[in-house]
Amino acid sequence: MSRIQTTFTNLANNKRKALIPFITAGDPHPDMTVNLLHALVDSGADMIELGIPFSDPMADGPVIQRASERALANNVGINKTIDLVKDFRKDNEHTPIILMGYANPIEAIGLTNFVGAIKEAGVDGVITVDYPPEESKEFVSLLLKNDIDSIFLLSPTTEDERIKLIISQATGFIYYVSLKGVTGSANIDMEQVSERVNNVRQFTNLPVAVGFGVKDAKTAKEVAAIADAVVIGSRIVLEIEQSNKDDLIGNIKKLMREMKDAIE
């Protein structure tokens, strides 16, 4: 069983929901990333999404764009991101790490190289924002051959036929994008999210995570009531941006515990 599957099974057995924070590798500095990852786990992260910095993050709002820019200014790209996961794995063998990024850096180092390197580093799943199933068949089959989960996004506009197509290629879990917009956008319409998540569940037994608009503990709690996992991205990245170096770990842990308490 994969680490992602194991985590979801254990959570489900305890009637609990997964908390999945997102940070960008190398933000605010590559020396901090591994410490941050451990701090996230210590304060309740069940899995972690780690963003691969990209110069043109088209699906991201301003907060995560700035995180990418800070990381790139620190010379953190796709290779360094993979190295950071490797460092994290030295002290943590159980928390799933999911890389989230865009197609171009992956293609630039080569699909086979990428998959080989992340397998060795201990990555568990990959979300490639601009790789819809039609354009990523080769990539998905490489991931699956290497027991790495291929996680796809579903959006509020995805129609049923397409949901079926995407689910046929998805493993690990389904990531439902809670709103029309970029990461960190306006408030989400919980009633609509609930309806859509239930709709998705007709087609799959995979766990469903919800993200893109979860800004506070209250929203996290509402999302946890209908989904199997809550993804919190921009809110955490904003905390990183606004914290002094000395307070950073403490602030992140505090924020995470608020979210964790809310979804328990």
């Binding site: 699906a59 819809p132 029309k180």
Partner: peptide, 21 residues
């Protein structure tokens, strides 16, 4: 029909845009 010119072109976008496209 998929917008490919040989190996070039295609539809590399986030899922939210697929329906609009």
């Amino acid at each position: 029909q998929f917008g490919h010119f040989g190996q070039f072109g295609g539809t590399f976008v986030a899922e939210t845009l697929i329906e609009a496209l």
